[in-house]
Nucleic acid binder design. Structure first.
Lengths: 224, 224
DNA sequence: AATAAGATGTGGGAATTCCAACAAAGGAGA
DNA sequence: TCTCCTTTGTTGGAATTCCCACATCTTATT
């Protein structure tokens, strides 16, 4: 497990924690590392909600599905991101969402309650962890708000452009790579994949954007 | 300000805090009570993000608006609910949303950083406050996820029914009152008001629901 | 009670999305 | 290289939403 300590110290949940303290801390929190193959779930809707996950490698996605099989992607989780903390911190008894691997991935699982409750040994990193957890929860709020902002646009085109220009801003360049395929992007924006593909084609032909696979380039400042 | 201590002790942010401790705590946190008239803002997009608000009376709503004036209601805030904490805890420099009064309301404003940082006097309620804040952030996450679940449905009718059956479940009765008018509900669900009105009429005629003003009644278990 | 202002319901044409089916392109493995 | 399988792009008709205009109902004010 030591080989992950470097990676872990870069996760925002463990920000400020010394790699040398990692071992005792993970012991205290009941840490466990798990490998997940592409398309497999780590959490399924209905599972008990007491674990927090931290993505170590690969990409995960949190999804909801309704009776009719309509899939909604809530968030795309990259290495360093955590998930599940909101449900545990809100004391839900079961998970209202599933989390699945978009690619082969590795995940660290922790017992969330042990972050919240000071342990018997009064580990000195608890205060730090709690501050990090607050920041994580707040950031998750922001990312949900962002998704809502995209979904609130009325047309497929404007949802797409809102997302793409946000990506350009976040990644600091008009050229960037998105962390998902077309189907996942459509499920994230809440639109039909084929309709979105059609819009992408139109935007390409009009010269507003260029794209190939997961690579995109915004041609003008025209944020429709 | 004393007259609010009872109310405050019922807010989840202050859960477990004794009304008699309220005064020193509010002093420590820089508490300030403000009255807001209907339609007036307490926060505007772009304002510095360092305050947390707690609704004491009335109803507030957090909203986003885009270039074209399309309004999106992120959440409807009732007495006891707090707002703004996510932006402050995520260390944003400015608010990405506005918060306005849906009715004449009273709001308690606190300096959020002072909740997070142990004060010089090491107030004994800090630990409690931080736990409450975590729960608030987690619950806000859940409420955003709910909104996303409604918005992810494809038709206006199913968005509406998802919301209404959730309300019935939350309020524990097939009869209930929603905390907003039609326009606000439409802006919350991300649909057109007039189209939503039409759907409501159809659902009434089909006998699935009954409604008058903010009162609703679900007639069958038929969660479309 | 009269009036005004705001909220809600109704209607229809234009625009958009959904949906399903299929074509084309890309990638992995034999 | 060839084949299979997955992803992406294309198309057209049906269904839905948007948008505007206006009727009706409600509430507040004088």
């Amino acid at each position: 497990m030591q080989k992950y300590f470097e990676t872990l110290s870069k996760c925002s949940l463990f920000h400020g924690i010394n790699p040398s303290d990692m071992e005792s801390m993970l012991g205290c929190l009941g840490g466990k590392i798990i490998a997940i193959s592409k398309s497999d779930p780590i959490f399924l809707e209905g599972d008990p909600a007491n674990l927090v996950g931290v993505v170590l490698s690969g990409i995960m996605q949190s999804v909801q599905e309704d009776y009719y099989g309509n899939r909604s992607v809530l968030s795309i989780l990259q290495p360093g991101d955590s998930f599940g903390e909101a449900f545990s911190c809100a004391s839900l008894e079961s998970m209202p969402i599933s989390v699945i691997a978009q690619k082969d991935s590795e995940v660290l699982l922790l017992n969330c309650k042990r972050i919240l409750s000071t342990c018997t040994q009064a580990c000195h990193f608890h205060r730090l962890l709690i501050n990090n957890l607050i920041k994580e929860l707040a950031n998750k709020n922001l990312s949900l708000s962002k998704k809502i902002r995209y979904m609130s646009k009325k047309t497929t085109k404007s949802k797409l452009m809102a997302y793409l220009s946000d990506q350009a801003k976040t990644q600091g360049s008009a050229e960037f790579v998105i962390p998902c395929d077309r189907q996942t992007l459509a499920d994230y924006l809440g639109v039909e994949r084929s309709a979105m593909s059609a819009e992408i084609s139109k935007l390409k032909k009009s010269g507003y954007i260029d794209t190939k696979g997961s690579w995109f380039c915004l041609k003008s400042e025209n944020t429709l």
